[in-house]
Design a binder for these strands. Structure first.
Lengths: 147, 147
DNA sequence: ATAAGATGTAACAATGATTATTACATCAAC
DNA sequence: GTTGATGTAATAATCATTGTTACATCTTAT
């Protein structure tokens, strides 16, 4: 199973806030238009990002702003905020290996550290990418269009 | 979404073949017992592993054997064999970002290389672990039980 | 040859996560 | 108080996962 599109959606949302935040009020309807995703889905993701302290959402008046500097927000922060994997565990382990079988009884002890190594590698790379990187490339590609 | 339990099941299957293959005939029913998973599911995974050239399954007579040396089979081989992610892509990108929005129009160009970096980090770590590592720990933990 | 035991696979159902959608209560500012 | 927005509940559609039954097919042993 793939990682939920909530992740790419969240990054897309940040790119919009950064690009359009000065000029326009970035509402869930605006973001729904840019992403082509239902506004309620957007609001749910905004709620998760807000809960993680990454953005601020204005009640009543509307609009969204980034809560930290872009260098401080990593892909790992976003990944965790939007709950891409259950329980924080990347691998879904088969639930009830037999306790009667020597292998089944020990399979968790055999495998868990290896699965964790893989998960850590993923998370380490996620942590190495920040929204400042996204901003840089956004400006680069949007800039190219205006020539 | 988590990575399908087909992956941990497949590794469990290999551990069983290696541990019990000399003494018993390792059938899908045997593996179903050890994993506590339906034999048809097991047979489907066996088919995928066989298709990837990692195991051999005896028709008619029954039983499964490993097709290569354990050092040659990495977690990445298994991960790919059991099709944990669609299309080989770890991240599910939202399908139709707006082409009218400058950000929406460029979001793939902005993000794709970064997502690929993360995916590569995951796959590199998967490639660094082999079934020989699993065998070593299996023997270690099963050995401890007989004391 | 045929019976036994196994694999390969189709068909179908149950479950659960994802995503879309409607509806509405609530909030802040004019 | 009207307006435009957020927060959230409720419901449905879709899809992948996993379980299950059933059966054709294959190999070996009798």
């Amino acid at each position: 199973m793939q990682i939920s599109s909530r992740f790419t959606l969240a990054v897309h949302i940040f790119a919009c806030i950064d690009t359009f935040g000065c000029e326009y009020k970035v509402t869930s309807d605006f973001l729904a238009g840019s992403t082509n995703v239902n506004p309620v889905i957007i609001r749910k993701i905004l709620g998760q990002l807000k809960g993680a302290g990454l953005i601020e959402v204005a009640r009543g008046t509307g609009g969204t702003t980034v809560a930290k500097s872009l260098e401080e927000i990593t892909f790992l922060d976003i990944y965790r905020a939007v709950e891409c994997v259950e329980n924080g565990e990347l691998f879904h382990f088969h639930e009830n290996p037999s306790t009667n079988c020597p292998v089944g009884k020990n399979i968790h002890r055999i495998l868990d550290d290896k699965l964790l190594r893989v998960q850590n590698a993923l998370e380490k790379e996620l942590a190495s990418i920040t929204l400042a990187d996204v901003k840089k490339d956004t400006e680069k590609y949007l800039g190219e269009e205006n020539r």
